[in-house]
């Protein structure tokens, strides 16, 4: 039992924190137009990046450095989980096979989920979504397979190098920008040659956004499925 004293102390702390935060928030009224840099983005996004989705353009292009960091954070998570749950020899130890309904359903849906994830990350510059949601969707496809089959494992030999390669690809795209446009993460496809200017708002536009999002999608998909795999396999005692 949690003692009453501890609870009441916690509630008093919360009241203080809450009052303090509310005072700060009262100075930032809800729903008002306070855009400064945001306005610049909205006005120039189409001309400067070739993407119609302003959020994606900010994520990949204007604030690309953040996204690089974000990819790194996920990579760290997958590496860290792998390091902590590392076993000399490991195997799936699930006990119950999924039922017929689950097995049939997951086999049927698997390709469609993969396709949907791919769709999300390829169309990142046009619709809400992008590499991270797309990659997460792809990882759910593998998660379903893990749930339905007791002995399923992802193809490790393919996924681990793919994860590294996709990450290197992202940095390389940035370094090509450094070589061509003399800025790291420079959008060399759009700003140098204006490829895709004719079909703004269609698939083949948006500069390097689709390329980077494809790399991110692959990376996130493989990483998250790797995390699922690390958590669902256990050590084999011999």
């Amino acid at each position: 039992m949690v003692s009453v004293l501890k609870r009441s102390l916690a509630i008093i702390t919360l009241l203080i924190i809450g009052y303090w935060l509310a005072q700060g928030l009262a100075g930032v009224p809800f729903g008002q137009d306070r855009m400064l840099v945001g306005k610049y983005y909205l006005e120039n996004v189409k001309a400067q990046t070739g993407a119609v989705n302003a959020v994606t353009a900010i994520v990949v292009n204007y604030r690309g450095f953040d996204t690089l960091g974000e990819v790194t954070v996920l990579f760290i998570a997958s590496t860290g989980v792998g390091a902590l749950l590392w076993r000399r020899k490991k195997r799936r130890t699930a006990k119950t096979e999924g039922s017929v309904v689950l097995r049939t359903g997951s086999e049927l849906l698997f390709p469609f989920i993969l396709m949907f994830g791919t769709y999300i990350f390829i169309h990142g510059h046009l619709t809400p979504g992008g590499g991270f949601p797309g990659g997460a969707t792809i990882a759910t496809a593998f998660l379903i397979l893990y749930m339905a089959f007791v002995d399923y494992e992802i193809p490790h030999r393919l996924f681990e190098p793919l994860e590294g390669l996709a990450g290197m690809g992202y940095v390389l795209v940035g370094l090509i920008g450094l070589a061509i446009g003399s800025y790291f993460l420079f959008d060399w496809i759009w700003q140098t040659w204006h490829w895709g200017a004719a079909n703004l708002g269609r698939l083949f536009s948006g500069g390097f956004i689709p390329i980077i999002y494809t790399l991110i999608g692959l990376k996130v998909g493989t990483e998250l499925s790797g995390i699922v795999d690390s958590m669902l396999t256990e050590e084999v005692r011999e």
Binding site: T72, P161, G167, G174, L175, L178
Partner: peptide, 25 residues
């Protein structure tokens, strides 16, 4: 040399960390 190459400070550890899975054998 161009000052922008200082971005290598971030790019170099990143790309080498991503390279490790390929040489772990």
């Amino acid at each position: 040399m161009n000052g922008q190459y200082a971005s290598l400070l971030v790019a170099l550890p990143l790309i080498s960390a991503f390279f490790v899975p390929l040489i772990k054998g």
